[in-house]
Amino acid sequence: MKLLASALLASSLLLTACERNVKPGQIGGVAPDFTVTDSDHSAKLSNFRGKVVVLNFWASWCGPCVAEMPSLQALQEQMPNIQVLAVSTDGDGDAYKRFLDKHRILFLTVRDAQQKSNALYGSYRFPETYIIDRKGVIRRKMIGPQEWTNPEMIDYLSKL
Rank of each mutant, 00 (worst) to 15 (best):
F57M: 07
K102D: 05
D40N: 07
Q115N: 13
V36N: 01
A43T: 02
G93Y: 01
T109M: 02
W148A: 07
K51P: 00
G93V: 02
L45S: 09
Q114H: 12
M79E: 08
S46F: 11
R134V: 08
L75E: 06
N118H: 04
Y121F: 15
D133H: 11
C18S: 12
A86L: 02
F99Q: 00
G25F: 08
T37M: 01
D94C: 00
S60K: 05
R134Q: 14
N118Q: 13
G29E: 15
C65T: 08
V22I: 15
Q26K: 12
I143K: 11
W58D: 01
G63F: 09
W58F: 12
M69I: 13
D133A: 12
W58P: 02
D90W: 01
G25C: 03
A59P: 05
V30F: 13
N56M: 05
A43M: 03
Q115D: 11
D90R: 01
R125V: 15
A113T: 09
S117H: 09
G25A: 15
M142A: 14
R134C: 05
L75D: 04
N150D: 15
Q73S: 12
F107V: 02
K135G: 14
I27P: 08
G144D: 13
T35F: 05
V36Y: 00
G28E: 12
Q78C: 02
F48Y: 15
N81S: 14
D90H: 02
E77C: 01
G91D: 14
A119D: 13
R104P: 00
L45A: 10
Q115G: 05
I27W: 11
G93A: 14
V66L: 07
P70F: 03
E19S: 14
Q83M: 07
A113W: 03
A113E: 13
M69L: 09
L72A: 06
K141E: 13
R49V: 07
H103V: 01
R134G: 03
R139G: 10
T149A: 05
L75R: 03
A95C: 04
T37V: 12
F126L: 15
D33F: 11
V84E: 01
V110F: 00
F34H: 09
D38K: 01
P32G: 11
A59M: 11
A59T: 10
